[in-house]
Nucleic acid binder design. Structure first.
Lengths: 330, 330
DNA sequence: TCCAGCAACTTGAACGATCCAATCCTGCCT
DNA sequence: AGGCAGGATTGGATCGTTCAAGTTGCTGGA
């Protein structure tokens, strides 16, 4: 068991003062090169590592970023958060930050959790996922000038704060375009009820692509809660309409799976494209729109560190393009 | 913006000394009840929260637990870690601990990461997932007497350290038993190559159940790497054998999915039971053996806090029973 | 020759909690 | 009333780092 190596140990070993060691670490340019070298050698020789707690106490900064880990809801989208978290951790490490997890039963309690995390851990910032219209969490944080980045746009005020998002409309538009290019005209849409930012966005892309091809989307649209059973039911309904679709674009892989169930039951085959490129889609060969989660996570960290390290930068926004992953079921 | 509330603020407000406030927090029983009440009132009134960094510097304990978040390998098992992490975070919070994430490209670098995490963050302990025969990581930690718990048994030395695991053999045995009870005798096994602790364990449960029913398992066993394609190929091979199986038990949902693909292609239907109860299984109606991940995570935290709070407890082990989840494909 | 000006480094103090040892109180016994 | 035991409370030191305010030594202009 090695003795504790502190900044004083390094200072003695390099025959300088503690402060000079601190300067070598935090402001190398103000130290004479040969002294700097001597200190750096001592740091390596002794295996010195700055104690985060002591640094934090003095500076008030923890180099810790908090992310909420939500209970897996329907299970199917669980791996999305998983991949996002991994990317976040990896990029944060590269910038000298660490990721801390917290849970909250609902948005209300999440705000309570903020206070706790901030006062006891001096957290530097938050990454918030899944924001929706008029989110109380972002308002709370903004009011207190606590740095945060959201993964997901604030639909009401596009420039309110820094965020990273994936252009869902571009994704569904590309999926729809692919089907149109394959000769389809009546491309149906399995979506969520109007009113959610994400859902409306994905629907908009599909509409745009159809209108661009001169097809009236109105009879081909549906809106239902997310879920396999809902997808199956809505597909049955859609197939019974006056002009049934010859292909389907869906707002989620869950809905797409439901559609496939109905189609198989009816003995029909139609191209179906899902959204999120979940493992389920990969496993059964369902084409899907894939979100660049690793990229998104990296950009979240970038934006957050900008807010933290830079002196009061303006909020920035990043919109990433998803990719259409084609598999044999399309 | 509120003034910073320190232990001194509380002490002034309650007209006692800092030490008394500290005692109310850390050793309430030695403070006179009425004084204790006065201090607690002051804490609530002022919204005081102990500064973790200062406490950590004095005590050397961070109340932080580290967990590695791995890059999602084949994607299909991603949600397993996800659910485990959520359980971990939730239980840790209840015990006053927080979960910090870290990544490592391989086991070698993971050990390097330990040193970094320990010296800069004063981490209290680790939760290690996916241990295998002669894991270098547990050896490293044990040598330095750093508290850790593994999710997964050390197959070589069952009592070497504290661990939590799920009884895979019991799971496959139950699955096999279910099929036997339904009238099957030739129940095949899609497993991994011999040599991995987890894989051998799952195979053993299947063998035990077959032998118990008086069936010779030898011609019904297979071993292949994990994956959908591998599962499909192995199933074809198995169906071509002298006594083909009339039902299948698999070591993973990936293998089970492969099996289903082959069966569908061959126009046959056989009951298939997977392992892990991934979202994919739930989505397509595949029966599967479900690991109680929330429980497992909670027990991990319990064991770890035992090691941390208690004075040198002996290592403890917890073996949890998985549950067979029956769906229409069984 | 003197001292302003600067670069390079050193010293003392502070962050907020806990630990330690010394002191103060209280009630009880003689 | 005085002494004493024992628990409650107090002040001071401490953890490792950074900030603020020195100190030293050197250069160069008048």
């Amino acid at each position: 068991m090695a003795e504790k190596v502190t900044i004083a140990t390094v200072a003695r070993h390099a025959r300088v003062s503690r402060q000079t060691v601190s300067n070598v670490i935090n402001a190398p340019h103000i130290v004479r090169p040969e002294t700097r070298q001597r200190v750096q050698d001592a740091i390596v020789t002794l295996g010195y590592r700055a104690n985060q707690a002591a640094r934090q106490m003095r500076t008030g900064r923890s180099r810790l970023i908090a992310v909420r880990i939500e209970p897996t809801r329907d299970g199917i989208n669980g791996s999305v958060l998983d991949r996002f978290l991994h990317g976040l951790t990896e990029t944060a490490e590269a910038s000298g930050y660490r990721v801390m997890l917290y849970t909250a039963a609902d948005d209300e309690r999440e705000i309570t959790a903020y206070g706790d995390l901030l006062s006891t851990y001096d957290l530097d910032g938050f990454v918030i996922t899944g924001t929706d219209h008029g989110d109380p969490r972002t308002a709370w944080l903004a009011e207190r000038e606590i740095p945060f980045v959201t993964f997901g746009r604030p639909w009401d005020h596009p420039q309110a704060h820094s965020w990273v998002d994936v252009d869902g409309a571009a994704g569904t538009a590309e999926a729809t375009g692919h089907l149109i290019a394959a000769g389809h005209r009546h491309v149906g849409f399995l979506g969520w009820p109007a009113g959610s930012g994400v859902g409306d966005d994905r629907r908009a892309g599909w509409r745009r692509a159809l209108l661009g091809a001169g097809v009236d989307p109105d009879g081909l649209d549906t809106g239902t809660e997310d879920g396999i059973a809902e997808g199956a039911r809505t597909t049955r309904e859609l197939l019974g309409r006056a002009t049934p679709p010859t292909a389907l674009v869906c707002a989620s892989d869950s809905l797409a799976l439901g559609a496939l169930q109905t189609l198989r039951g009816a003995g029909t085959t139609l191209p179906v494209i899902g959204f999120d490129d979940t493992p389920v889609a990969a496993a059964i060969g369902l084409s899907s729109v894939s979100q660049p989660l690793g990229d998104a996570a990296a950009r979240c960290v970038d934006l957050l560190t900008d807010l933290l390290d830079g002196p009061h930068r303006d909020p920035r926004q990043v919109l990433l393009r998803p990719a259409l992953v084609l598999r044999h079921l399309a």
